[in-house]
Design a protein around this nucleic acid. Structure first.
Lengths: 345, 345
DNA sequence: CTGTTAGCGCGTTCAA
DNA sequence: TTGAACGCGCTAACAG
């Protein structure tokens, strides 16, 4: 059971002053006698005082915890965004309450409720793939809690949006395949109602258009972002359609394709060239190593944190969209060994 | 800025009852008139009431948030333990406040402070590799907050400990190498002051002893748990010492060894057999696939959650140690293709 | 079954 | 510079 803890009243009694004085001394910048303050700090330390942030927040109306809602914490991308957020938020005196949705809209709604009940100072979110109704986002804003979206964002909701340059990443990636001789390029797409997958699809189509290659809907595989889907797409699309290049919106489906193609003894990159998205750690472990688009997750986290801090206490949210640069990392799944020189474009 | 939120007083005024009644109705199980309760719930929903858990916790002395302190959230093992914890804790009405230490003892101490200031109902921890002084652990217990350790635990601290059967995993792993013909088996060890690495080391030695193989200290590489260390160990120990088997305490150093050995054109598993620990996702992506010891992280998380819940409100912590079973997954880094039949021991 | 009273620990008036 | 008094929103004890 939680034992009785030291309060400012205990300290005050010990020192023969009032709780107000102790409170002011602990707060730091208020007007208190210099040596009174020092005595308070000393006694507080001696008595093992731990401020009760619940009481403090209740009284002041301010909170030092910020909620973060993500699909999964164990994705390379998300965990690095989290680290980037922490890197700025912790020094600023904030804590992160992280909740996973496991890609479930229902969990996302519950997460928002939990955070609101905990009176967080702000909420950071990248929505689940299921989410199509963003009324819970609006509710957060209506409650006056700053909401910052990143990566997967809805344009219908006000406030800062920190996004990757998915279009450019997809464009460069597809151009890279074209430059290396591909003419029938399949696209493993994600759910197109999610901005990131729509943008990658757009970049792919734009690259084809610029190169004068006709877009063929038969070469687009929807909802193809997990390993198993990538494997299936090989037998259902890649082989029958005589595809010679794959631009996957996910490293996982790209991985599945590699594995399945190897089973069929299709040479990579000679017969089929492949590039993925997100530069998961396994991209440089798989055989052949996987060309992918690297996202600067840590930098994104920094920008996210900056945006939250800026918007706390503001009456209106600043609705700016910040783009984080991506870069294509060329590896052996798309370039013959001998040609692989400068790996970064 | 946080707008004015609905309180139970608002609801009470609206309905012409007292805040107490509303509070009781919302709490659910108290004695309130059935239709009073229903009216309260209805009005609360209409007005968009969000309970203030800060005020609730402050008054009741109870908290529904539990702190979890881990080295990193993006490790396969830790993220799955977290999921396992959430799976039991969320339905029970608790939230998780997760803090990463990034393997820094200083961050760990700060994390504990933060959690205590937030009056969490309990703390779950797997200590950082740096941590040698556990006084902050004791402090938590002295404050009356239940502390549950998992995976990396200190035997000097009271309370539940949920651990993997590292000894058995190491034993089976090393026996497996021996059975497949290895006689000069190196061990890539971790920091031996951490229980998990000491236990893996012990299992390795015990397997050698049982097989009548002399232990050779020259074959033990300390602090060899990251990829780079594994690569270095190949040139410094594996090749010069004519090692024919490697039991690595980490998949990452095992991976490094595989990569370096391939550079030297050493055949795996024909010339050197390798097994790792933790069964990271890349274990089945790397070429050759990596034999490893799988830990049941999700089950461990469940046990951890169970232990926390049991100990909340208790006067004394139950000091039991729960062992979670592990299993060896045989893959091609230690078994020739033709021999690889039943992969699980 | 419901109202009254009190107070969790702290921060912020207003006076002195 | 310090003290006194009040209240953030809620729950708990005691009446009735």
């Amino acid at each position: 059971m939680a034992k009785k803890r030291i309060t400012i009243t205990d300290i005050a009694r010990e020192m023969g002053v009032t709780p107000s004085t102790v409170s002011r001394a602990l707060a730091g910048n208020n007007r208190v006698g210099l040596n009174t303050r020092q005595r308070v700090l000393k006694v507080a330390a001696q008595m093992g005082y731990q401020p009760n942030v619940l009481a403090s927040s209740l009284r002041s109306g301010r909170s030092d915890t910020i909620g973060m809602v993500v699909p999964r914490i164990n994705r390379h991308f998300f965990s690095h965004v989290i680290s980037g957020v922490e890197a700025l938020l912790n020094p600023a005196g904030f804590n992160l309450l992280i909740i996973q949705t496991h890609e479930r809209e229902e969990h996302e709604r519950k997460a928002f409720h939990t955070l609101l009940r905990n009176r967080v100072a702000g909420i950071i979110v990248s929505h689940s793939v299921e989410t199509r109704d963003f009324s819970h986002f609006q509710k957060v804003i209506d409650e006056g809690v700053p909401l910052v979206q990143f990566d997967r964002v809805s344009g219908l909701i006000a406030g800062p949006r920190i996004v990757n340059d998915n279009f450019l990443g997809a464009l460069r990636s597809t151009q890279h395949l074209i430059k290396n001789g591909c003419t029938r390029i399949a696209h493993f797409a994600g759910a197109l109602h999610v901005n990131v997958y729509q943008e990658r699809f757009d970049g792919y189509r734009y690259a084809l258009e610029q190169a004068g290659i006709d877009f063929d809907p038969a070469l687009v595989v929807e909802n193809c972002i997990i390993q198993e889907a990538g494997m299936e797409a090989v037998t259902s699309i890649v082989l029958p359609q005589k595809v010679d290049g794959i631009f996957a919106a996910s490293d996982f489906s790209a991985l599945g394709a590699i594995q399945k193609l190897k089973e069929f003894n299709v040479a990579i990159p000679d017969d089929v060239k492949i590039s993925g998205f997100a530069n998961e750690p396994f991209a440089e472990m798989v055989e052949p190593t996987l060309t992918s688009v690297e996202q600067n997750a840590f930098e994104m986290g920094n920008q996210v944190a900056k945006a939250v801090i800026e918007n706390i206490g503001k009456e209106e949210l600043l609705s700016e969209e910040i783009h984080i640069a991506v870069r294509l990392i060329q590896r052996r799944s798309s370039v013959s060994d001998s040609l692989l020189m400068n790996s970064v474009v």
